[in-house]
């Protein structure tokens, strides 16, 4: 049984517009059988935080192309992507890439 986790979830680059414009969310993930990883964090976000048009954020079981996921300020690719196991007090940032100039 994994203990509840306190995690900072943040959205930027316009991704926050799908979350009522709120960028920073301090969330508590409830204790559960298996450890919390990014894959089930995304499911939790979709259910609990996402306010509209999930297809603009999620595609399949991952984020849509054009959204970068950063765990404690590092590209999630360096940390195992969907399989990264969250630790208490981790910060996860979802940033939509900008194209304007």
């Amino acid at each position: 049984m994994a203990a509840p986790l306190s995690v900072e979830v943040e959205f930027g680059g316009g991704a926050e517009l799908l979350f009522d414009g709120v960028k920073k969310h301090q969330v508590t993930l409830p204790g559960q059988e298996e450890p919390w990883d990014i894959r089930n964090l995304l499911v939790w976000i979709k259910k609990n935080l996402l306010k509209e048009r999930p297809e603009l954020f999620i595609q399949g079981d991952s984020v849509r192309p054009g959204i970068l996921v950063l765990i404690n300020d590092a590209d999630w690719e360096l940390l195992g992507e969907l399989d990264y196991q969250l630790q208490d007090q981790d910060s996860v940032l979802f940033i939509s890439t900008l194209h304007g100039g």
Partner: peptide, 18 residues
């Protein structure tokens, strides 16, 4: 390397709209 797949066109916002 960072963005192997392009974003879906409907998710891209330009300066005139955004």
């Amino acid at each position: 390397c960072v963005f192997p797949q392009p974003p879906p066109a409907e998710t891209v916002t330009n300066c005139a709209d955004g």
